[in-house]
Simulated assay, not measured.
Amino acid sequence: MQNFNNQSFEDLIRNAQPQQIAMFDKEDNFKGYRQAPASTLTVDLNSPFVSQAEIATMSDSARSMMTRAHTAANTQALMGSKPNQTTWKHMIVSAGTLARAGMSIDTSGNFEGFPFFMGFDDAIGTIWLGEGATIPENSAPTTKFPYEIHSLGAFTMVSRRFQKMVPSFFPQLKIAQANAIRDAVEKAFIQGNSTTNPAQPDGLVRQVTKYALTGASKSGLIIIGESLEVLEGNGLDREEVSIIMSPDVAKKFRLETGAPAHKALSIKEDRILVSRFMPAGTMVSGRYSDFQAVTNPSIAFLAHTYTPAGQPETGATRVRSIFEADAVVLNQDSFVKTTSIA
Rank of each mutant, 00 (worst) to 15 (best):
A123V: 06
E27N: 11
M65N: 05
P167W: 03
K26P: 00
K263A: 15
G235A: 07
N110P: 02
K174E: 06
I181F: 02
K31Y: 09
I135S: 13
D11Q: 05
K26W: 05
F111M: 08
E148N: 13
A216V: 11
F111W: 04
M118K: 14
H304P: 03
K26F: 07
I190L: 12
G132I: 04
G102N: 04
L41T: 03
F145V: 13
M157K: 10
M245D: 09
V284F: 02
A38D: 07
Q35E: 12
S81I: 05
G125S: 15
S59L: 12
M283A: 12
N5C: 07
A38N: 09
A316R: 04
A101M: 08
Y33E: 01
S64Y: 08
V329S: 01
T257W: 08
I55H: 00
D183I: 02
V166G: 00
V208G: 03
M65S: 08
T71V: 13
P167Q: 09
E186P: 03
A325Y: 06
N15H: 15
E232K: 10
A140Y: 12
G192S: 07
A140R: 13
K187R: 15
I190Q: 01
Y306M: 06
M66I: 14
W88I: 00
S104L: 12
V166R: 12
T209R: 11
S61G: 05
E229L: 11
E240Y: 15
A212F: 08
I127T: 15
S39H: 03
W88H: 02
V274M: 12
A53C: 01
I222G: 04
P141G: 01
R238S: 12
R100Y: 06
V185H: 00
A264H: 09
F120W: 14
K26Y: 03
D28P: 03
A188D: 05
V241L: 02
R100Q: 14
P297I: 08
E186L: 05
L273W: 08
Q19I: 15
S139V: 09
F169G: 01
S334H: 08
L231D: 04
F145A: 11
Q76E: 11
L78S: 03
A140F: 12
G80V: 04
E226N: 11
N6C: 10
I341W: 02
M103K: 00
Q172E: 12
F323S: 00
G315T: 11
Q20N: 14
R318K: 14
T307D: 11
I341G: 03
A123W: 09
T97C: 04
